[in-house]
Amino acid sequence: MGMDWDVCVASELEDGPRERLMRLGPGALRVDELLACIMQSGNGKQNVYEIAQSLCRHLGDLDRLADLEVAELLSVPGIGPAKAVQIAAAVELGRRVVRKPPSDKRQIRTAEDAAKYVMDRLRYLKKEHFVTLLLDTKHRVLAEDMSSVGSLDASIVHPREIFRRAIRISASSILCIHNHPSGDPSPSPEDIAVTRRLVEAGRVLGIEVLDHIVIGDGRFVSLRAEGYMDSTS
């Protein structure tokens, strides 16, 4: 107990996670081993494996890691500010890599294309996240913006913020997507109100809002298909 990383590797594990990662790649490691690699060392009272396992027990479900904030990380026994920052930075880096649009400028032809584009990233999140896909004239993805909104309403999802980058990069149209953490993609009255507000703003700016898609657990709803994109409907 209380051993640091180097002592733990030398005395307890002939083939530690860092060595196995180098030899086999990160896909061969368990979650606690990956966390141990990120945190690197114990804290004098617990070795790095004990801290990693404590965090795994706290999470219960790995999907929770995507929404874990620094304050909650600090509540896990053995994790101080330095380790909390290491974990938060690693998670954010992974999030940015995953949400980076493909280099081939994927074309979004249908609502199903758009849903597939973000489904795996949004379906398990515990907070509502609003994604804006910025598209060219051929509906290819130029860029993507994502923000955590908690719950959707017009005061949070403001047209000024949604269209700012679209104007800067000369996007022809945008496609809006957000998730429902409940797993039920049925649009709420707030979803419909925000959609109509964005559609009207897009008409003024000359940037079409192609659709607003709500993501659930393996399901999605297109507000255009449901007839909510027309402000008079």
Score class of each variant (00 low, 15 high):
Ala84Ser: 14
Glu144His: 00
Lys45Tyr: 13
Val7Asn: 03
Trp5Met: 13
Arg164Leu: 12
Ile162Gly: 00
Ser75Val: 07
Gly27Val: 06
Ala84Trp: 03
Lys83Phe: 06
Ala154Cys: 01
Ser148Val: 15
Gly183Arg: 05
Val91His: 05
Val76Ser: 08
Glu128Arg: 14
Asp104Gly: 09
Ala154Glu: 09
Ser170Gln: 09
Ser155Val: 08
Pro185Asn: 07
Asp67Tyr: 07
Ile79Glu: 07
Glu226Thr: 02
Ile174Glu: 04
Leu122Cys: 02
Pro77Ile: 12
Leu29Ile: 09
Ala111Pro: 02
Gly94Gln: 09
Arg197Pro: 00
Ile167Asp: 00
Leu35Asp: 05
Leu24Asn: 15
Lys100Val: 00
His212Glu: 05
Gly218Val: 12
Met1Phe: 08
Asp61Trp: 12
Met1His: 12
Ala143Tyr: 10
Gly27Ala: 15
Pro185Trp: 04
Arg140Met: 03
Asp120Met: 15
Val214Gly: 01
Asn47Glu: 11
Thr195Met: 13
Gly183Thr: 08
Gly202Tyr: 01
Ile51Met: 14
Lys126His: 09
Ser173Val: 03
Lys138Cys: 04
Ser233Arg: 12
Pro26Met: 11
Lys127Met: 08
Asp191Leu: 03
Tyr49Gly: 03
Glu69Arg: 15
Thr132Met: 07
Glu190His: 11
His129Pro: 00
Asp4Cys: 11
Glu69Asp: 15
Met22Glu: 13
Asp113His: 14
Asp184Glu: 06
Phe130Pro: 00
Phe220Trp: 11
Gly183Gln: 04
Val31Ser: 07
Lys126Glu: 07
Arg109Tyr: 02
Pro77Ala: 15
Val118Tyr: 03
Cys56Pro: 02
Arg96Met: 13
Arg106Asp: 09
Asp217Ala: 13
Lys116Arg: 14
Ala201Leu: 00
Glu208Lys: 14
Val118Gln: 07
Val131Glu: 02
Arg165His: 05
Ser147Gly: 06
Leu55Asp: 02
Gly80Asn: 02
Val97Cys: 07
Val97Phe: 02
Gly2Asn: 14
Ala52Met: 04
Arg165Ala: 05
Arg96Thr: 04
Arg165Lys: 10
Glu128Phe: 01
Ile213Val: 15
Ala115Cys: 13
Ser170Leu: 08
Ile51Val: 14
Ser222Leu: 11
Val85Trp: 11
His139Tyr: 12
Glu144Pro: 00
Tyr49Gln: 09
